[in-house]
Design a protein around this nucleic acid. Sequence first.
DNA 1: CTTGACACCGCACAGATGTTCTTGTATACT
DNA 2: AGTATACAAGAACATCTGTGCGGTGTCAAG
Lengths: 232, 232
Amino acid sequence: MKLSDRQRKILDFIAEFVDSNNYPPTIRDIGTACGISSTSVVKYNLTKLEREQLIKRDKDVSRGLSLDWTRLQEAGLAQHMAGAPRPDVSDTSNGSAFNFFQVPVLGHIAAGEPIQVETADHNNADEWLELNETLYRNPSELYALRVQGDSMIDASVLDGDIVILRHQERAENGEMVAAWIDHQNETTLKHFFLEGDQVRLRPANPSYPEMFLPAAEVSVKGKVVSVIRQLE
Amino acid sequence: MKLSDRQRKILDFIAEFVDSNNYPPTIRDIGTACGISSTSVVKYNLTKLEREQLIKRDKDVSRGLSLDWTRLQEAGLAQHMAGAPRPDVSDTSNGSAFNFFQVPVLGHIAAGEPIQVETADHNNADEWLELNETLYRNPSELYALRVQGDSMIDASVLDGDIVILRHQERAENGEMVAAWIDHQNETTLKHFFLEGDQVRLRPANPSYPEMFLPAAEVSVKGKVVSVIRQLE
DNA sequence: CTTGACACCGCACAGATGTTCTTGTATACT
DNA sequence: AGTATACAAGAACATCTGTGCGGTGTCAAG
């Protein structure tokens, strides 16, 4: 379908309005801006635009309309419009997707030092790590620790590496977790197995020995999601 | 001023609502979502948030509110919120900036298998990795390999890890490189030291022994820039 | 004890806003 | 001429939605 001048103007105005107000215009806003005296005419045209999928509308909701940038892009209408999203490599369906996010580096981890994930709120992280959305889910549960010393070497994690963890207190068998071992005053990264009331901790590097401990002495601080070593 | 739980919740909800609806919620929307029965209480808290400049509000306008991401970022509240604008690391002015890029995963690497970086053009990679611009420079020189088997365990690199390399034939002393060793028919990741006409290769994991080889037998395939282990 | 600030609740009101109905004009097709 | 369709206007209606005001309970200061 071909759009009328009026409809094009309406689209432009909506874009401009949203861009400068952060909320959509009302039907009457559109009317006065586009020189339409009647609300019904605006609605008429909006319905039309909605049929073309260029906008989305929510019935009976004030200002309940939004532009569909994907379709506008397809129709070649987006270029000159205000607030058009910049084209993104992986941005697909919805117009709101941001492709990466930040994860707080809550501090250092070393054997002999407990990590306080619960208390350490995300607000006072001393460093932030930018990660890619395609690789991780539920980013809000993630945090990162910088490894200090060679204490994790049996997990093939070296001094300076960054460990990304998903905060959780319980672990499934076989998962690699960050565990605090009471009696040894040590945090360590190992594969976790609960066997009766005993916990078996298997290093990632098979040339190191396994550990067997009473379950009460081991507390899980999070699941290891990723290890990143940055050398340059 | 410190925000109450309720106020934090309201902010979160607004972010989430806008993210999924493209228009802001009403006072009543916020109320029901945050367990507030009275509209006036919502208004009360919104006024408070507005005083803190965390949101902007337009009088008498339905859904006339928007989040101030700049201030939210400053307050350290933005990270975990839905639809937070990505912090623009690179630039803001022109619309062309991409904050991340893709690196080809050229194939697998295992001891005994030579890697052909020169021939393997970037066009027929079987996999692509999205990386962040802030962490790497000169992305066009980068390529990645997926490690197969435990042959790199002395470099604390495990089966399944991804190694990111910068393509270069020569290495400075001390750099971690991917090296092909003629006589052993093996690719390995080690710290590289040229000592006279001998090459010393030191594993990253100190519990493994060093190697000494004639320089002619060792050819550098690239410098190791990063090691990424994805566990979930 | 009194006072006042603070956070909260309910409710009524008015203005903001989408919807619907009726009417009118122009164009195209039969 | 007759009919269908796209486009437009205005007014009445319904409801959505922000605002204002009186009231409650708590808590610390005077």
